[in-house]
Amino acid sequence: MIEQDDVFLLFDYVGTPTVTRVLPLLKKYSDRHIYLFFPFTGAQPQREPPYNDFVFNFRASYRQETEGLVDHFVDIGRKNIALFYQADAYGRSGWDGVKRALAKHDLKMVAEATYRRGTGYSESLKQQVEILRRSNPDAVIAVGAYAACAAFIRDARDAGWDVPIANVSFVGSENMLSLLLASSEETGKDYTVNLINSQVVPSYEETSLPAVQEYRHLMDTYSVLPPKEVLEPGYTPLRYSFVSFEGFLNAKILVEILKRMGRIPRRDRIREVVESISSLDIGLNQPISFGPDRHQGSDAVYYTTVVDKHFVPVTDWKEWAK
């Protein structure tokens, strides 16, 4: 893209391995002022030297998400925390975040188990459930993709294990929920209990927020399908989702940046323009700021849980107190 298409900037890359692979290239093309904007990952590499100069993030990092989860669990007396994660850089960054957050409290993970990237919902993750359950943890943090995490939750609950399970934002909360609800319909068992998902954007159910109103309005007005080349048969886009809401917010900030670039945007000015953004209101009741030492717009982490088949903000962690 950089060589042949001469793109102006890179935007919204999805996934930790994807982003970590691209980082060295960004460094290589640093003289051409190629920047990656708002990658859809909370991983650490793009937030740290030597790559933090070439990336602008919007969302809070996995470290922040996992730190928030760990802090809350520890607060309510759930100190023995186990980790279920994807065997790749994404899972590892979650693992790293949990480890650091626990270390802050002089704690260590009591158990960890991985799964292979691309594991489907139909596959069994009983082995992982058993490995973690052996250490009898107070809570499980899952850093994975929706299908595998849903399968893990299903197998844990099927095994009669009702430990609180927390997922991070990347999981794709709605997809995970729809799989679990489908299984609930089949077996009559509620797979959504004791489920907590951390998010880096507010819930799209919080309609009091102007950004949510705008997002919902636009999503209701325009129904856009993915390009034909990548459209999978039987795919129906979700009406709203945390992921698309995050994408919407990413785009909103990018548009603001491009506006500030002036009539003739120049690559060499990107950094200067973005770093000058301070207390930008995008309708989240929370100002967005960038700076030379701050390449991440938001530090906010939101927690949601399933009530009545919907993700709603967590109002009281005491619910899961030990």
Binding site: P17, T20, Q44, P45, E48, D88, A89, G91, S93, D96
Partner: peptide, 17 residues
Amino acid sequence: LETFLNRDASTIQATVD
């Protein structure tokens, strides 16, 4: 080496993978 010193596990994981 740099990554090890930075203690960034996910980059090490990416390398290892």
